[in-house]
Structures are given as structure tokens and as C-alpha cells.
Design a binder for these strands. Structure first.
Length: 428
RNA sequence: CGGGGAGUGGCGCAGUCUGGUAGCGCACCCGGCUGGGGGCCGGGCGGUCGCAGGUUCAAAUCCUGUCUCCCCGACCA
């Protein structure tokens, strides 16, 4: 799979001096990301593996509700944005090409997708439709912050639903609720789906998927059977002040900071009207398409996972997001029997399809253990001189830093792989 | 956009007040030792001090301008 001796994983003992958020510090220290400028980040190999894990989960669940993947450009003509009135948004990057034509860098893709749907959808027979892409977004944020949490450029999965009427939109919306619930569950994050403010998108309803953690920029209000954006909760007539806090129907409301991971909107005809996305129904009536838009940020899933599960030693990935399943530490100099044993185990795991990062560096055990715990792979296997004496591979579960029963060294490969898989299945 | 802070080797910092041409720890390279929790010894490489201009015999240090980055707030399809 990968050998640490030639893998680009620049770990640091110390966090960047100006970093504040846990995810900012740890993602830099663990060699997952590096900054290029304010709100501009590079994903290094291990970090990108985690990001791609999140994307893979999202893609599977989108495909499962019949959404069709495509790709739209980031660089776009300004005209559609003028038509929807969004050219005036300050966060929108605007530029000109050499001929002086007005262009924008898309902050999201309603204009693009609606432009295409307006051209291609003519009949009620073409609906409903859900399309999506995983593409970069550009936003001239007034204040990027907290590492990868709020950036000026980031990857987003955005999907768009097109229906003939409001009932259809409601169905597409519910499909997305299902998909998003499954996505969030699969990531292993602690999360809430909350009612949100429809904001300046207008529209008919919206929810946000929020992951509670200290670095969160938003506040959510939680009570048994209830979860909402704080502003929404405070507008709820049933919510009342109680001492220092608030309560709903006699239940204490807990206020927690959280990261917005995803959001889903019922747009209605906000974009189809100005961009002319219309269809003919059975009666020959010319009607606007009803739209929904649905976004989710893989980078925020990654950062939230770091925030929620990190401990004093470093990152502790949920199994579904980990860059590597197994971090194999080989102790001892290259060429010694113990290292030969580690090499053998590495070969067995790699050939068995286990995603393993093998620390084959000429470094001391302390440094290797520290890096393993910083990077946070769910399982750490250790092979050293002691393994040769005992005939055992030591196993540490990263979450909780707990020792698991050792595995047999030098046994049947299939048996070892089965044992590793069993262990893997038991992880959070 | 308002407020605060900071730019000195890859990272973390000292030096700036009291100008005299750059230092420490980590990392990195070489040699040796060590080998189960960031180990030890010795020898090295690497920066002209964000940028521009000015003052001065002399500027990391003083002056002016400018760029960049971070934090708090406002904002946040």
C-alpha cells in the first residue's frame, strides 16, 4: 500500500503558531494539509485520501437515489448571474478575460445547472431529474478561518432536483433527506439535522446537517426530539426563557456550537423563472420547473471528524474516513529478523487488500508511535524484537488507545487477514 | 468592514527599545552509538531578517509607504 519512508507525510511536533482550532492544528501537524494563502489550502496525499473517502460515501448515496453525476465549470460567463440577480453578491469572484468579457468564478452552481436544464428539458416527460457534481467552489469570504473549516476555495458536492410541481419537489427533497441522513451516519460523525433559516435563498424550507464541536461557527438548539438552528429555535413560539437558558415544552434546550456540514433547500422557481427553465405539461401549458439544491462539504466532514474524536495524542479517525486502516510500525533496523517479520506482514496485508501504511523508516520507536497516534489510523500493529519472542503482533486500537488481543505472527495469511477484518468490523 | 496581533532558514522562537552586516531548539545531511515511547555524541548544509523607498560611515534594528498572515466581531449561497 504505502511505505512511510517514501510517502509525503510531513508531520510536525508543533502546531502552526497562529492556529486556534483543533482541526487546524492537527491536520497541519499530521501532514494532511498545508496552507498557501488565506483560505487557500492544499491537500497532501494522506489528507486527500480522507477527503476522497468522504466523497466516495457521498457519491454512493447520491447514486443510490438516482442522482446522475456530471461536471460543470467553475469559470463561467457573468450573464446568467446577472439574470438571477446574484452578480451583485460580494462573495462572488468576478474577473475579465483578455477580450474584456465578464466572467465569474462560481460560488455554487444553480445558474449553470439551470441554464442547461432550460436548454435540455422541454417536457414533463423529462422530469423529475436529479443531477450532481463534485466540484470546486470559489468564494471571496470576508474572513476565512480555522484551517480547512472556512476557506475561499473548497470542494462541494452539490446536487439539484428538477420537478414539475411542488409535490414533486417535496419528493426529491425527501430523497435527499434520506441520502444525507445515510451519508452522515456512514461517516461516523455525531450530527443533527436541524431546521434552518431559508435566508436569502428564499424558498420553501431548508435543513442543515450540523456536526457539534468546539470549533463550530453556528449554534444549534437541541432537546429530546427537537433540533434547530438557534435563530430558528428562538423564533419558535413554544420556546421560552428558563433561568439562564431556554426550554421547549418543559424540556431544557441545550445550545451547542456546530459545524455546518451540509444543507438542503427547496428553491421553488427562484432560478427557473429568471433563467427560463420551463416545460410543457400534458395539457400543453408552459410551466416553470420546481427546483431544490443540496450541498455537502467533504472538507468539513473531515475537519469535523478531527474535531469530534481527537485526543491529546492526535487524530482518531472513524473507520469510514481513515486514510489507512492499519498503521504498521516496524521496530528495529532494516535487515534485522524483526524487520524482516514486519516486511512479511506488510506484504501479507497489502496483498490481502488491507489499506496499510508501513512505517519502515530508520527511526526510533518513540517517534514512530507518536506519528502513528498523530495520524490516527484506527488500528496500529507493531512488530519488533518482542514479537519474535512471543510470536505475536501487537494490536492497538486508536480510539481510546486500547490494546487489543495480539495476532499470531507468521501464521496462515488468510487467517491473519480474517482476524484483521474481524477487528476492523468491531471499530467505531 | 471594525478591533487586536504578527511577518527573522522547513517548523517554533530570540535579537528590534539602547543601529555595528544574524542566533537558539526541532527538522535536514554525514559519521558513530542506541534501538519498545519523539534517545545520545561529533561534524555539517541552509536565512540578508515580507517588499519598496528613506535616514546613516553602517539598518533585522530608526522613518515612510506597501504587501501578507492570524485572532475576535460583523458577515456567512
Amino acid at each position: 500500500m504505502a511505505r512511510l519512508s517514501n510517502y509525503l507525510l510531513p508531520t510536525e511536533k508543533e502546531a502552526p503558531a497562529d492556529a486556534e482550532a483543533v482541526s487546524h492544528k492537527l491536520m497541519v501537524r499530521a501532514g494532511l494539509v498545508r496552507q498557501m494563502g488565506t483560505g487557500m489550502w492544499t491537500w497532501l496525499p494522506a489528507g486527500w485520501r480522507v477527503h476522497q473517502r468522504a466523497v466516495a460515501i457521498i457519491r454512493e448515496e447520491m447514486d443510490a437515489i438516482g442522482a446522475q453525476e456530471m461536471l460543470m465549470p467553475v469559470l463561467q460567463p457573468a450573464e446568467p448571474w446577472r439574470k438571477t440577480g446574484r452578480l451583485e453578491i460580494e462573495e462572488l469572484f468576478k474577473l475579465h478575460d483578455r477580450k474584456g468579457s465578464e466572467l465569474v468564478l462560481a460560488m455554487t452552481h444553480e445558474e449553470a445547472v439551470t441554464y442547461h436544464i432550460a436548454q435540455t428539458v422541454r417536457s414533463y416527460r423529462d422530469l423529475p431529474l436529479i443531477v450532481y457534481h463534485v466540484q470546486v467552489k470559489e468564494r471571496d469570504e470576508p474572513r476565512p478561518r480555522a484551517g480547512v473549516l472556512r476557506t475561499r476555495e473548497f470542494v462541494m458536492k452539490d446536487s439539484y432536483s428538477f420537478d414539475r410541481d411542488q409535490d414533486g419537489l417535496q419528493q426529491s427533497y425527501e430523497l435527499h433527506v434520506g441520502a444525507y441522513d445515510r451519508i452522515m451516519q456512514r461517516t461516523g460523525l455525531r450530527f443533527y439535522r436541524v431546521e434552518s433559516d431559508v435566508g436569502m435563498m428564499g424558498g420553501l424550507g431548508a435543513h442543515e446537517y450540523m456536526a457539534p464541536c468546539a470549533a463550530g461557527e453556528d449554534q444549534i438548539a437541541i432537546a429530546p426530539g427537537y433540533a434547530a438552528n438557534l435563530e430558528v429555535a428562538l423564533r419558535n413560539a413554544d420556546v421560552r426563557q428558563a433561568g439562564d437558558g431556554y426550554e421547549l415544552a418543559g424540556q431544557q434546550l441545550t445550545i451547542e456550537p456546530a459545524i455546518e456540514i451540509g444543507n438542503i433547500f427547496k428553491l421553488g422557481t427562484r432560478y427557473s423563472e429568471p433563467l427560463g427553465a420551463r416545460y410543457l405539461d400534458e395539457n400543453g401549458s408552459d410551466l416553470p420547473v420546481w427546483m431544490g439544491s443540496y450541498g455537502i462539504g467533504p472538507a468539513r466532514i473531515v475537519a469535523a471528524a478531527v474535531e469530534q474524536f481527537a485526543d491529546e495524542r492526535g487524530i482518531s479517525w472513524p473507520a469510514a474516513l481513515a486514510p489507512f486502516a492499519v498503521h504498521l510500525v516496524g521496530i528495529g533496523r532494516a535487515g534485522t529478523p524483526e524487520r524482516d517479520a514486519a516486511e512479511g506482514l506488510y506484504a501479507t496485508l497489502s496483498e490481502g487488500g488491507v489499506e496499510v501504511l508501513y512505517d519502515d523508516r530508520d527511526a526510533g520507536p518513540g517517534e514512530k508511535f507518536a506519528d502513528a497516534e498523530l495520524l490516527g489510523a484506527p488500528l496500529r500493529l507493531t512488530v519488533g524484537p518482542r514479537s519474535l519472542e512471543s510470536g505475536e503482533i501487537e494490536v492497538q486500537v486508536r480510539r481510546g488507545l486500547a490494546d487489543a488481543p495480539p495476532l499470531a505472527l507468521g501464521g496462515e495469511p488468510q487467517q491473519l487477514l480474517r482476524a484483521v477484518d474481524e477487528l476492523w468490523q468491531s471499530l467505531p
